[in-house]
């Protein structure tokens, strides 16, 4: 299966994904490898606008959007909210580069995490967490819901160093 080649083509499998990030982004490369390994269809987009254009043009629902927190939280979290409206949700990686949670949780970082969670998105700090999420979603692919993966307040505070 793997990456969908043609644009404007509806993803017709139960679980599908959009990976947002440039070609050189290691987390996104990891995510696409993982999705291919689980035989899940996905689209790779360089930025949130292209990703949203895919959403809008193809009428996607029940889609997992994967990307770095810094990139997905642009425009004050509007992307999270827009994706949520279509019944899909985002899974954001906060553990890479300047957005590393373990550096103590800057105000900007806390804001991004807060924006993501308010819109019902997942924030992960370890790559391995993504595999768990994909594996579980793949088993229950008819109803994509992120609630079961959501971090507790205590876990979030620990991640942010609060």
């Amino acid at each position: 299966m793997g990456e969908i080649e043609t644009q404007n083509q509806r993803l017709d499998t139960d679980l599908c994904a959009i990976v947002v990030g440039r070609n050189g982004d290691s987390f996104c490369n990891y995510a696409t490898d993982l999705l291919a390994g689980y035989d899940i269809k996905f689209i790779r987009c360089g930025d949130i606008y292209t990703a949203f254009a895919e959403f809008a043009a193809n009428d996607f629902t029940n889609t997992l959007v994967i990307g770095n927190l810094e990139q997905l939280s642009a425009e004050d979290g509007l992307f999270f909210r827009s994706v949520k409206k279509d019944g899909s949700f985002c899974c954001c990686f906060a553990g890479g580069g300047s957005t590393r949670l373990t550096t103590g949780g800057s105000a900007q970082m806390q804001k991004r995490v807060s924006l993501a969670e308010q819109a019902g998105s997942l924030v992960i700090n370890q790559r391995a967490e993504l595999e768990k999420i994909i594996a579980k979603l793949n088993r229950n692919s008819n109803s994509i819901a992120c609630d079961k993966f959501r971090t507790t307040k205590a876990e979030r505070d620990a991640l942010l160093g609060v």
Partner: peptide, 12 residues
């Protein structure tokens, strides 16, 4: 006012 809503509108 923002690009994401504009993309949405342009798709409809």
């Amino acid at each position: 006012p923002n690009m994401l809503d504009a993309i949405n509108a342009a798709s409809r």
